[in-house]
């Protein structure tokens, strides 16, 4: 296969490297903007779960333009550190904390945001029901902080997994926004269940008080409006967006796209910063993982206190899959 095979399998991955985007997902936001004009008149934007920062990059390039517009304020929030971007203020914080919301407002000098975007995805377990649930909770957490920072009439864009309980999420979003659309940019693969909800015109129910202390809990199925198996389900309109003549994310392209230009391998723009598997991969690469005849090289200094009596009983090791 080799390192160029990903360039062939994924045209947007290649284009992202050529155009200097940190991730191919930048094209998704660009294509969403093409369809919905999301950036029109926006001067204060929030990027939730921003790392590695490709959406912040799009916001920065699109909103500030070439002559760095000082009126435009962009705030990127993530738990992880992220390489700096021009014109983007970073907050390393938790989107479920009221303090984070307050900090965002502080950066906007007391004003609310015009646009909130969120391209966050959770650490997946591989079990579909768990992953979809956690993604839904992430979206609801993003919605919750959005209710604190978004101005009425503002827009909210977030990644959604079109899984088994997606209609429950739709029904929840429709409470807060007058228009909810499920959009699929052409740069998002046809084969993935990923899509984006474009929620326009923030109009919370009358008397709604944003509250961060309790998480927004997801809805349940009922008999009349949103059934589990029946014909009555809350489904929002679907819109495929992006230019039809644009590249096709599912197609495999030859490396030589254009006969005038020689193919050249480009390294990724921004490699991941401290992924969780870093240490395990390091041990694995250097053949240091524990085996049947050797312990793994203990990499941690947190093991100082090991003076436990090793004759501890271990007889009631009842277990379960937790």
């Amino acid at each position: 296969m080799g390192r160029s095979s990903k360039d062939k399998r994924d045209i947007y991955y290649r284009l992202a490297k050529e155009e200097g985007w940190r991730a191919r997902s930048a094209f998704k936001l660009l294509q969403l903007d093409e369809e919905f004009n999301l950036f029109k008149g926006v001067s204060r934007a929030v990027d939730l779960c921003a790392a590695p920062g490709s959406w912040s990059q799009v916001l920065s390039r699109k909103l500030r333009g070439k002559e760095s517009n000082e009126d435009v304020k962009i705030v990127a929030v993530d738990l992880q550190a992220m390489a700096p971007l021009p014109g983007v203020t970073q907050i390393q914080g938790d989107i479920t904390k009221i303090s984070t919301a307050q900090e965002i407002i502080r950066h906007f000098e007391g004003q609310s945001a015009d646009l909130v975007v969120c391209d966050g995805a959770p650490d997946v377990t591989g079990l579909h029901d768990v992953d979809e649930y956690i993604q839904a909770q992430l979206l609801l957490a993003a919605l919750n902080i959005t209710t604190h920072v978004l101005k009425p009439g503002g827009n909210f864009v977030a990644k959604i997994f079109r899984g088994k309980d997606v209609t429950l999420l739709y029904s929840q979003l429709k409470i807060f926004f007058s228009s909810v659309t499920c959009a699929k940019p052409r740069s998002s693969r046809n084969s993935s269940i990923e899509a984006f909800v474009v929620c326009q015109n923030y109009s919370p129910p009358e008397g709604y008080v944003p509250n961060m202390s309790n998480p927004l809990l997801d809805h349940s199925y009922d008999v009349d409006f949103n059934q589990l198996e029946g014909p009555n389900r809350i489904i929002v309109p679907f819109l495929a967006c992006g230019d039809l003549s644009a590249f096709d994310s599912d197609r495999t392209y030859p490396l030589q796209l254009d006969s005038s230009k020689e193919y050249q391998y480009l390294p990724p723009t921004q490699p991941p910063i401290r992924p969780p598997y870093q240490k395990a991969c390091h041990l694995r690469r250097n053949n240091l993982l524990a085996k049947e005849d050797s312990a793994s090289v203990l990499p941690d200094d947190a093991l100082s206190a090991m003076s436990l009596d090793s004759k501890q009983e271990t007889d009631t090791a009842a277990s379960g899959s937790r």
Binding site: L289, A290, L303
Partner: peptide, 13 residues
């Protein structure tokens, strides 16, 4: 609480 062991041995998660 103290961490007694850090066990790396799995090839994947």
């Amino acid at each position: 609480p103290t961490c007694l062991r850090v066990l790396y041995g799995h090839q994947a998660r």
